[in-house]
Amino acid sequence: MNIIDWAVNTMGTLGGPGVALLLLLECVFPPIPSEVILPLGGVSAGRGEHTYIGILIWSVIGSVLGAYILYGIGRALGPERTREIFIRLPLINAKDFQKTDEFMQKHGKTAVFLGRFIPGIRSLISVPAGMFAMPFGVFTLLTAAGSAIWNAIFIAFGYYLGSRWQVIEPYTDIFSKVCYVLVVLVCLWILVKLIMRERKRRAAGLPDPDEKHLEELKKDQ
């Protein structure tokens, strides 16, 4: 039995709560694709087995609960521990941590909301939200709002197209692949910038900006 068959059986057995469970798992186990789960939930609603609103509500519950798990991981790490990790990693330093913190303080709400529409980012954005202590209520509201819009669209495909919803699957698959490629390209671009910065620093004979911080950490340990 493949993942899709298992997802269909789970929804058939548990109904709306099954949709919530699958979307919760999708947040921490990306191979379960929401772009397939949601239309299937819409198909069952279109057949009268469930209501559109019911499936949508359960889907948002699952998306939010899944996001809570990753948000909790971020909160468990916390800003101080995250800062320690930053300064121990090659190529990045405490200033990069500060810039990340400033970005989340300034643009974190937008990132959490819009991140719900981007495969890959949809789950991961919850981690920095937790790391930099975005208020729990704000995080919940933004996650629920973004997830509701995304989920409503894909549930509607299944609801109105029925078993023919698969005609859109190639397009959603292309969209997902393009998003993943763009994420990889951005990561590679950042990596190249960091490598070039480190080369310039060494060529100029400048000290590692994190040496003092690392010495302080060793003393504390």
Rank of each mutant, 00 (worst) to 15 (best):
1 M>S: 11
1 M>Q: 10
1 M>L: 12
2 N>M: 08
3 I>S: 13
4 I>H: 11
6 W>R: 12
6 W>G: 13
7 A>N: 03
7 A>V: 07
14 L>A: 15
14 L>P: 11
14 L>C: 13
16 G>P: 14
18 G>Y: 00
18 G>F: 00
20 A>K: 00
20 A>P: 04
20 A>C: 04
22 L>Y: 04
22 L>F: 05
25 L>C: 11
27 C>L: 13
28 V>E: 03
29 F>H: 03
30 P>A: 09
31 P>G: 09
31 P>Y: 10
33 P>N: 13
33 P>Q: 07
34 S>N: 03
35 E>H: 06
35 E>A: 10
37 I>N: 06
37 I>T: 08
41 G>V: 01
41 G>C: 00
44 S>F: 11
46 G>F: 02
47 R>P: 11
48 G>C: 02
49 E>V: 04
51 T>V: 03
52 Y>F: 10
54 G>L: 00
55 I>R: 06
58 W>D: 07
59 S>Q: 05
59 S>T: 12
63 S>Y: 04
64 V>R: 01
64 V>Q: 03
67 A>M: 05
68 Y>H: 15
77 L>H: 02
77 L>N: 02
78 G>P: 06
81 R>F: 02
82 T>H: 04
82 T>Q: 06
83 R>M: 14
86 F>E: 01
88 R>T: 01
93 N>T: 07
94 A>S: 11
95 K>W: 04
95 K>V: 14
96 D>I: 07
97 F>N: 02
99 K>G: 02
101 D>C: 12
103 F>N: 03
103 F>W: 05
103 F>L: 04
104 M>K: 02
105 Q>G: 15
105 Q>E: 10
110 T>P: 15
112 V>S: 02
113 F>Q: 00
114 L>Q: 03
115 G>K: 02
115 G>M: 03
115 G>D: 03
116 R>P: 00
117 F>I: 12
119 P>D: 07
119 P>M: 08
119 P>E: 08
120 G>K: 13
120 G>Q: 11
120 G>W: 08
121 I>Y: 14
123 S>Q: 08
123 S>H: 07
124 L>A: 13
125 I>E: 01
125 I>W: 00
125 I>L: 03
129 A>E: 01
131 M>W: 03
133 A>N: 14
136 F>V: 08
142 L>H: 00
143 T>I: 04
144 A>W: 09
144 A>N: 04
148 A>N: 03
148 A>W: 01
150 W>T: 00
153 I>E: 09
154 F>L: 11
155 I>M: 06
157 F>W: 10
158 G>N: 00
161 L>F: 08
162 G>F: 00
166 Q>H: 10
166 Q>M: 11
166 Q>W: 14
167 V>K: 07
168 I>D: 07
169 E>N: 15
170 P>D: 06
172 T>M: 10
172 T>F: 10
174 I>R: 15
175 F>D: 10
175 F>Q: 11
175 F>P: 08
177 K>V: 15
179 C>Y: 04
180 Y>K: 13
182 L>H: 11
183 V>E: 12
183 V>A: 12
183 V>M: 12
184 V>W: 10
184 V>A: 14
187 C>Q: 14
190 I>P: 09
191 L>E: 15
191 L>K: 09
198 E>T: 04
199 R>H: 13
200 K>A: 15
200 K>H: 14
201 R>S: 14
203 A>K: 12
204 A>P: 12
207 P>Y: 05
210 D>T: 01
211 E>C: 09
214 L>N: 06
215 E>D: 09
215 E>V: 08
215 E>A: 12
217 L>N: 01
217 L>K: 01
221 Q>E: 15
